[in-house]
C-alpha cells in the first residue's frame, strides 16, 4: 500500500465535504424518499394486517422500521450502478488516476464512503424521523444493535461500492457498460430488499437473493439495526457482509490490475 491511513481518512473527509455542497439535491432526494416511504408503508402494513398482524417475523411496528430504515439507507448505498469511473475509463482519464500515489480502488472507496455517510444528515436521518413521527416504528431499546448496525451500514455502503466498481472496471474490456449498469440497478434493488423485505420472498427466491452480495448491501444492515436479528445471528450476518465485501473488493482489485496491464500494453 503506497499511502497511509491518514491519506484515506482525508479522502473520506473530502468526499463528505464535497457532498455537503449539494443541499438542494439532498432535499430533493428526501422528498422522493419520503413519498415512496408512505406508499411502501401503506401496501406493506396492509399485507401484515391481511395476514392477521404477524407476517414472516414482522408486525406493523417492525415493518415500519423496515420501511423507514430502507428509505433512509437509499441515499447511502449505490443501487443505481452509476459511478464516474465508467466515464473516466471510456475517456481515458483513468490514466491520471493510475498515476496518483494512492490506490485507485481504495481512493474511490474512501471518497464514496465519505460522501454517502454525509447523506445520513440531510436524507437518512430525516426520512427515519418523518416515519417515526407520522407512523411510528418499533426500534430496539439497547445500545448494541445501534453500534453493530452502524458498522453494518458502513459495510453495506462499501459493498455497494465494491459491486459498482467491478461493473465499471469491466469497461476496460467492454465498449459499453450502460447495459450492465441497468442490469445491476434492477437486480440489486430487488435482491437488496428495497421494495419488499426478503423474509417475505418465497423460499427459492430468498435463497437466490442470498446467493448474491445484494442482501449485504441493505437488508442485513436494516435487520441488525432494527433488532430483527440479535445476538449471534446478528454477528453472523455482519461476518457474512465482511466476507462479501472482501470478495467484491478482491475481484475489483484483480480486474484493476488486469485493466492496468491492458492499458500499458495498448497505451490506452
Amino acid at each position: 500500500m503506497r499511502a497511509g491511513v491518514r491519506t484515506y481518512w482525508k479522502l473520506v473527509v473530502s468526499g463528505f465535504r464535497q457532498e455537503s455542497h449539494y443541499r438542494l439535491a439532498a432535499f430533493a432526494g428526501l422528498v422522493a424518499n419520503v413519498t415512496f416511504g408512505f406508499l411502501k408503508a401503506a401496501i406493506l402494513f396492509a399485507t401484515v394486517r391481511a395476514s392477521g398482524g404477524h407476517l414472516a417475523g414482522y408486525d406493523v411496528g417492525s415493518m415500519s422500521a423496515y420501511v423507514w430504515l430502507s428509505q433512509g439507507m437509499l441515499g447511502m448505498v449505490n443501487l443505481s450502478g452509476t459511478h464516474e469511473l465508467g466515464e473516466r475509463i471510456r475517456s481515458g482519464d483513468v490514466a491520471v488516476d493510475f498515476a496518483r500515489p494512492v490506490d485507485i480502488q481504495g481512493s474511490y472507496l474512501a471518497r464514496f464512503v465519505g460522501a454517502r455517510v454525509f447523506t445520513l444528515l440531510p436524507r437518512g436521518l430525516p426520512s427515519v424521523v418523518v416515519g417515526a413521527l407520522t407512523i411510528g416504528m418499533t426500534m430496539p431499546a439497547t445500545a448494541q444493535p445501534y453500534l453493530l448496525g452502524g458498522v453494518s451500514i458502513v459495510l453495506g455502503i462499501a459493498s455497494s461500492f465494491g459491486c459498482v466498481y467491478v461493473i465499471h472496471v469491466l469497461g476496460f474490456w467492454l465498449v459499453e457498460t450502460r447495459g450492465l449498469q441497468l442490469l445491476y440497478m434492477v437486480v440489486s434493488g430487488f435482491f437488496a430488499g428495497l421494495f419488499v423485505p426478503l423474509p417475505l420472498f418465497p423460499s427459492w427466491l430468498h435463497d437466490a437473493a442470498y446467493a448474491t452480495p445484494f442482501p449485504s448491501v441493505m437488508m442485513t444492515p436494516i435487520n441488525v439495526l432494527s433488532g430483527q436479528l440479535t445476538g449471534l445471528a446478528a454477528w453472523h450476518s455482519v461476518l457474512v457482509q465482511v466476507a462479501w465485501l472482501a470478495g467484491v473488493l478482491l475481484l475489483g482489485r484483480v480486474l484493476t490490475s488486469a485493466g492496468l496491464r491492458k492499458l500499458e500494453v495498448q497505451g490506452g
Partner: peptide
C-alpha cells in the same frame, strides 16, 4: 438488445414485487 433486455427485466421485477405480496396473503386491499 441489452437495453431491451434490461427494460424487460425492470417490468418483470416490478410485477414480481406485487406477486410476492400475494404469495403471503390472498386478498390485499
Amino acid at each position: 438488445a441489452l437495453d431491451l433486455g434490461s427494460s424487460l427485466l425492470v417490468g418483470l421485477v416490478e410485477l414480481a414485487e406485487v406477486w410476492i405480496l400475494f404469495h403471503n396473503v390472498t386478498v390485499l386491499g
